[in-house]
């Protein structure tokens, strides 16, 4: 029975995290898959969301900014707004330049955030991070508590998926695709290309902030390592590319497959002891990187390829 509960809790953890990555994958797909915007600072937006929501909702501790005890939902909204505002600022500056510049600027955001987290201990509790972040339903008995949170996350994924699918079929989404596929033509048709791009960048980044907030509430803790690109940014990109960028189903499938693979291999690497226990997990990252390269080179359309209109060849 205990073993059963152990497995159940593990599955709940797995699905919840896959769902949270799914939220962020939808955001990255909106930016890269549909608009061609290159965001390498996912970890930055993730951390902004995590910290903002944590500060808004956590009880008074005296160790960091906060103690507002706001409700969970308000924390999520604040996380999205904060990420969105930062994205707007960066977007205003870089959106006219080639994607590479946007990518460079987005790692800048993550870097500045790292500095703030490190230096402003009064607000962020420095390296010790913020703990005891409230999680909804945590007072429910046994596995029911994480299960309820899992259902909440999955419900959010479903709602977001529905919204994004509708948006893509609406005129807004068609303009997005037109811009990505043939910018001069879209411009000639009188579309304000910059505005559409900034919108996509803001919404995508807000979803990454939402992912950060959901993670912080789920693990009940956030620390400065949230800005580490190794996990969030990298895994998310692998998810989108492997799943198939350009369509939301691909993004979600990628999130599920890669997160499962990631967690499953953790069970293997956890068996190592001593010095190797520290090193072997990175072999896992290396292999995930290798999978990314192989998919990029050989199966560039991913597991669930984007359905392309007649007469158009591959994205690249």
């Amino acid at each position: 029975m205990d073993q059963f509960i152990g497995i159940l809790n593990y599955l709940i953890f797995l699905i919840t995290m896959a769902g949270i990555y799914g939220v962020m994958a939808l955001g990255l797909n909106l930016q890269w898959g549909l608009t061609g915007l290159f965001n390498i600072g996912v970890a930055g937006f993730f951390a902004i969301g995590a910290y903002v929501s944590a500060i808004m909702t956590t009880a008074e501790t005296g160790k960091h900014l906060g103690g507002y005890g706001m409700p969970f939902a308000l924390g999520l909204v604040a996380a999205m707004i904060a990420s969105g505002i930062i994205a707007w600022g960066i977007g205003r500056i870089c959106i006219r330049l080639r994607s590479d510049y946007l990518a460079i600027a987005t790692i800048g955001i993550a870097e500045i955030l790292r500095l703030i987290l490190k230096n402003e201990g009064w607000a962020t509790n420095g390296a010790r991070g913020i703990s005891n972040i409230p999680r909804p339903f945590e007072t429910l008995p046994g596995s029911l508590a994480p299960l309820s949170y899992m259902i909440l996350v999955l419900a959010l994924v479903a709602v977001l998926y529905w919204f994004l699918e509708r948006g893509q079929k609406a005129p807004w989404g068609r303009v997005m695709r037109a811009i990505r596929d043939n910018e001069p033509a879209a411009r000639a048709a009188g579309k304000n290309v910059e505005r559409f791009r900034i919108e996509a960048f803001i919404i995508g980044s807000a979803l990454m902030g939402l992912g950060g907030a959901l993670t912080a509430h789920f693990i009940k803790f956030v620390g400065p390592e949230a800005t580490d690109p190794l996990m969030t940014t990298f895994l998310l990109w692998v998810m989108l590319i492997v799943g198939g960028s350009g369509n939301n189903v691909g993004a979600l499938v990628g999130a599920g497959v890669i997160w499962t693979a990631w967690s499953a291999t953790e069970l293997i690497t956890a068996r190592f002891t001593g010095d190797w226990a520290v090193r072997v997990p990175f072999l896992r990252l290396f292999l995930i990187g290798l999978i990314l390269q192989i998919v990029l080179q050989k199966f560039s359309r991913g597991i669930v390829p984007e359905k392309l209109p007649e007469g158009r060849s591959e994205v690249d």
Binding site: I40, S99, P229, L230, W237, G289, L292, Q293
Partner: peptide, 14 residues
């Protein structure tokens, strides 16, 4: 750019 980002993290992991 994506490939080089992947290489960055592969190098660091290695």
């Amino acid at each position: 750019v994506i490939a080089s980002f992947g290489i960055a993290l592969m190098l660091r992991s290695l």
